[in-house]
Nucleic acid binder design. Sequence first.
DNA 1: TTTCTTACA
DNA 2: TGTAAGTA
Length: 134
Amino acid sequence: MDADKNAATRPSMKIGELAKTANISTRLIRYYEEQGLIESTRAANGYREYDPVLVDRVWQIRGLLEASIPVKIIRDILPFLDDPCDIHVTEASPELIAALEEQHEQMDQRVHFLTRNRDAIAAYLESIRGARHL
DNA sequence: TTTCTTACA
DNA sequence: TGTAAGTA
């Protein structure tokens, strides 16, 4: 079924390939790994090998990071993102829960902030377009 | 050629 | 984060 373009979930992607596929630098990939955000195995020659599913994982990490979520928290919720069914919730410490609630609240505020500005810009654009037609 | 580690800007 | 150096 998959002869050439489907190496779906096999631990074999070199850092350069992952970088190109996920559109991030190899430098950042190594950095995420240093921070314990992603894992990799090592080939006999010492080269890192990545599971192709990390392409998505990297995007999730970027999103979380861009939302200013601390690496410490990302580390804790990443395993949950892997299998949402896994019951990490049961062992979530009060500290983690508190941190996540705070982050959630902050994200909510950002969403409102962005929404408001987006609408303001949309309205401004509208008025400009209208004026242009005069 | 690609990747690795370490380190500086 | 990018980039340089010296390897494997």
